[in-house]
């Protein structure tokens, strides 16, 4: 893990919907960089917004300074989307030609979609648009695989972290993940988390 950041600060946005485990994912990632001496700032929205609303975490990773908990418009380097349409929402505000996107395919329908008032776009269309608005993007069935292999959707986030490592966009080491996750989950859950992480790594090739 000697690779340095491609940008300083490196601006990463984790986006999703309330209840998807967004905050947890940003903490794990933040802690992995923090333990390696980086200065990390995470801006989050939660509270009422968790009740079905969009939730975003802004991560700023720097070798020296503490940055704003909000990334400026158009300044994201990498977007990790736990929900595909949320990636597009974030791109509209923070995207640019060079941004990269790692995206989970599992949709979470807004209540307006459930009620039939709004439409949810087809996956192919979402992929096409995200591709158009980014320099590089990866899509994976993280939640579906988590449900299949681990029987719980929350491991989709860990799969995404593993996949994130494999994209080599930011320097992430498996051992760092292991030490951070070991601190935050019960001992008997470590293996399944590592399995999810490795699965994620294998899904990016």
């Amino acid at each position: 893990m000697n690779k340095s950041l491609q940008f300083d600060p490196y601006n990463l946005i984790i986006t999703g919907v309330g209840g998807q485990g967004n905050v947890m994912a940003s903490r794990v990632l933040g802690n992995m960089f923090s333990m390696n001496g980086y200065t990390v700032t995470i801006g989050e929205t939660f509270g009422a917004s968790q009740r079905g609303g969009s939730v975003m975490s802004h991560l700023r990773i720097s070798s020296d300074a503490c940055y704003s908990p909000q990334i400026a418009k158009g300044q994201a380097h990498l977007i990790v989307a736990l929900e595909p349409t949320e990636a597009l929402r974030v791109l509209a505000n923070y995207g640019n030609q060079d941004v990269k996107v790692l995206c989970n395919n599992r949709p979470i329908y807004a209540v307006g979609v459930i009620s039939g008032e709004l439409n949810y776009p087809e996956q192919a269309r979402i992929h096409e648009w995200i591709g158009e608005l980014s320099s590089q993007c990866w899509f994976l069935d993280a939640t579906d695989e988590a449900l299949k292999q681990m029987r719980h959707p929350i491991y989709g986030n860990i799969i995404l972290l593993g996949a994130l490592a494999a994209t080599e966009t930011i320097p992430i080491a498996r051992e760092d993940f292991k030490s951070i996750i070991a601190d935050s989950v019960p001992a008997d859950k470590l293996d399944i988390n590592m399995k999810a992480y490795d699965m994620g790594m294998d899904m990016i090739s």
Binding site: V17, T85, A92, A110, G112
Partner: peptide
């Protein structure tokens, strides 16, 4: 980006 987000990303009412 704004157009695509407008068409694709549904408003998430609380």
């Amino acid at each position: 980006a704004m157009q695509k987000s407008f068409f694709a990303a549904p408003v998430r009412d609380l």
